[in-house]
Computed example of a mutant assay.
Amino acid sequence: MYSWALFYDLNQIPAIMTKVALRRKPISKERLSLYLDFYPPIPHPDTGKLTRREFLGLFLFEKPKTQLEKHHNKETQALATNICAQRQLAIQNLNFGFLAKEKQKITLLDYYRKEAARHNGSNGQVWQSSLLYMQDFFSEGQKLFELTVADCNAYKDFLLHAKSQRCKRKAKISRNTAVSYFIKFKSTLKKAYREDLLKSDLNTKVSAIEPAETKREFLTLEELQALYGTDCPLPVLKKAAIFSALTGLRFSDIKKLTWREVQHSQAEGYYLQFRQQKTQGVELLPISEEALQLLGERGLPDTLVFDGLEYSAQNNNLLRDWVKTAGITKYITFHCFRHTYATLQLSHGTDIYTVSKLLGHRELKTTQIYAKVIDRSKREAANRITLKIT
């Protein structure tokens, strides 16, 4: 097979068309090694020297005897032909990254571990948890460069049926947990493609897992008032939770908030100017006088507003006990205070676009989940007035 692409020499002067030929070379055990022949030669990205060959690591049986050997030859020939066509397109765009052997040695798990290590806090814990399932499915020797769409889809199916790594009962992980883990896998693919570590943009070729619709628990205004009036064994946890309900901030952003980020101007009043931990987007969030009052006496610019606030199982238990003491029977986590802010804003007439901006959502559809909560609450309210009509 022959493919052609315009070749530029090292001085970027147009020369002649480069021919990419799929060739065979006899090797041991009556086999034929497949390789690509580039003429004129192309620059190697690792050394800068001109090269004419790329060995594909594929072989054919010279004289196939069995049906299995004939099938192998057919499939391998098709694969090699496809690679040859890909090389034509790459050379046409002066992209010679496919020859970078050092990049091809990088394993998927090593690359994913480095990605997971870049994240910290609660998001970092989710990355580390997702790594357990990556290690369970992929082998240590799986090269990132050799990853295929079929591999990615197989991993997706694995997550949808995977057993919990942490639960003693070995129950299946929830669908939305699988959604979260697969999103992190896809974001890793996206980054690897940008760095020329993948042959194709696998992220766009593999569909995400559709999330299951879940009930987003929130507090009513009366419940929030009752909670504010109830003592908590850890005062900083109470202050942070109520602040989240008044501002919509995530735990990760509250934990790292400094007094420098709490600002004031005549035009804007009081506001927070900070970088979201989750999206890394810079936000300017107006806050109420009440929210500011909750923070107490102002500290030094670079000190934490919520000094001593930590994410832990013990603190999660303290939060649940505090909620229970307030007479609230709902299952409330810290993130529910963000849900409470969004839901109360919508129920009090704030338009969904404004709520989306206040929450720092990149897409309006993320905020529309809360609109569904309001619709459900309206339905429940409508059913509260009943007559015994016969």
Rank of each mutant, 00 (worst) to 15 (best):
Q314H: 15
G327K: 08
T343W: 09
H335N: 07
T329V: 11
W322H: 03
A326V: 13
R298P: 03
P301Q: 13
T333S: 14
W322M: 10
G327T: 07
N317P: 00
I328N: 00
I287L: 07
R338T: 12
R320G: 01
L346I: 13
T333F: 00
D307K: 15
G296H: 12
R320F: 11
L319G: 06
Q314A: 15
L304C: 04
A326W: 06
D307Q: 14
E310R: 14
E289L: 13
E310M: 04
L344T: 05
N317H: 13
L309Q: 11
L344A: 11
S288D: 08
S288G: 11
V323G: 01
D307T: 01
P286F: 11
L309E: 04
T325D: 11
P301Y: 11
I332Q: 01
I328M: 03
Q293P: 00
A342Y: 12
S347F: 03
L292Q: 02
L344G: 08
G299F: 08
R338M: 07
L304R: 15
D321Y: 08
E290F: 14
T343Y: 07
L344Q: 14
T325Y: 00
C336P: 00
L292M: 14
A326H: 06
L309G: 10
L295C: 10
I328F: 08
D321C: 04
D302Q: 14
R298K: 15
S312H: 13
G296S: 10
G349I: 03
D321H: 12
K324T: 15
S312Q: 12
L319K: 04
E310G: 00
L294E: 06
L344Y: 09
L304G: 02
G308E: 06
L295W: 03
G327N: 07
D307C: 07
Y341C: 13
I328Q: 01
A291V: 05
L295V: 04
E289P: 00
L295D: 06
A326D: 03
I332G: 04
P286S: 03
Y311L: 02
G299S: 10
G327W: 05
L285N: 07
K324R: 15
I332C: 05
Q314V: 11
Q314P: 00
L292T: 01
F337D: 01
I328G: 02
F306V: 04
I332W: 10
L318D: 01
Q345M: 15
S312A: 09
G296L: 09
E290H: 13
L292V: 07
I328L: 04
T325V: 14
S312R: 13
H348Q: 15
V305S: 09
D302M: 08
G296C: 10
L300W: 11
K330N: 04
K330F: 02
T343R: 04
L292E: 01
N316M: 09
A291M: 11
N316W: 03
A342M: 06
L344P: 05
T340Q: 10
L285C: 08
H348C: 12
L295N: 10
L285P: 03
T333N: 12
L346P: 05
A342W: 08
